[in-house]
């Protein structure tokens, strides 16, 4: 039997690693409560604040959309970036490393599995949010909206792959990074308000996190009237920036994974557990 090509190994790895995430979600239904209803409570808090101060109704839409995108950010931080730490603890990482496949393929599989699972959760948050709070949207361009959404995910999960290279070497020590990034990014990326409110320079700095640009562009494409006065950048510029971020993060992730794997092999950290 001929040995499979590198490409065949790559895409089979992607499917193989995506499988447990997708199947796992079906077999453990607790996510319905923890990942849908609990985030809605936070969204509700912001909605009631906006209503109390008599903000325009579009702000409710901003919050619901931000609440849905929160699920992706958390998924990237805790199920992509930190995943190699957990894989090391269970012994799976050793088996990934000694397999003739690439860690990028493993991570892509995790990302696809994570995106499928998180999209179901995010969609549930949006659907319930729209239903409860009677949010009205006016889609400017569906292709652009889908494009922004998909590019945001590509760039975001590319960033997650880049972070995971740190966990490959530093293990649990790197979890401080995830803790450090979680709440501040909720603030600076404008999950619950238009990012322009932070000022142009701060918004520009926060744009290194893809969800900042993605959220702003999606809000412009869903709530055009209100966002005319709050928009950060033109949607086309944000689309272009997301393309650049996607390429940069994916390329950097590939380089960093190779480098960190090499360093970890030299340090002996690839297989040391509990560090």
């Amino acid at each position: 039997m001929s040995s499979p090509s590198r490409w065949e190994v790559f895409w089979r790895t992607v499917i193989g690693r995506a499988y447990p995430r997708i199947i796992g979600m079906q077999r453990e239904r607790s996510w319905v409560f923890f990942d849908t209803l609990l985030p809605l409570l936070q969204v509700s808090a912001f909605v009631f604040i906006y209503r109390a101060i008599q903000a325009p109704p579009e702000f409710t839409g901003f919050v619901v959309l931000g609440g849905a995108m929160t699920a992706y950010w958390l998924n990237v931080l805790w199920s992509m970036a930190t995943q190699f730490y957990w894989e090391k603890e269970t012994g799976n990482l050793e088996l990934y490393i000694i397999a003739p496949t690439s860690l990028m393929a493993i991570l892509l599989g995790m990302a696809i599995g994570g995106i499928v699972g998180t999209t179901v959760r995010a969609a549930a948050v949006i659907a319930i949010g729209l239903l409860i709070f009677h949010v009205e949207v006016s889609i400017v361009s569906l292709p652009q909206l889908l494009g922004v959404f998909l590019l945001t995910l590509v760039a975001l999960y590319g960033l997650g792959m880049l972070f995971s290279s740190l966990f490959l070497r530093y293990g649990r020590q790197a979890s401080h990074l995830s803790n450090l990034l979680q709440e501040p990014i909720f603030l600076v990326s404008g999950f619950y308000f238009p990012v322009r409110a932070l000022g142009f320079v701060a918004a520009l700095g926060a744009s290194v996190i893809p969800v900042t640009l993605g959220l702003d562009a999606m809000r412009q494409l869903l709530f055009p009237t209100m966002m005319a006065q709050f928009r950060f950048l033109d949607v086309r510029i944000e689309l272009g920036a997301l393309v650049v971020l996607s390429v940069v993060f994916l390329w950097s992730a590939k380089r960093a994974l190779g480098h960190m794997e090499d360093l970890a092999r030299r340090d002996g950290r690839l297989t040391i557990r509990g560090q």
Partner: peptide, 26 residues
């Protein structure tokens, strides 16, 4: 390795084994 705890608990035996074969392109 002895005492190995690899694989994913929510998957069945054959699903776990299938997953690992995919990393070899089988």
């Amino acid at each position: 390795s002895g005492g190995e705890s690899s694989g994913y608990g929510l998957l069945t035996v054959e699903e776990n084994l299938w997953m690992f074969t995919q990393f070899y392109g089988i």
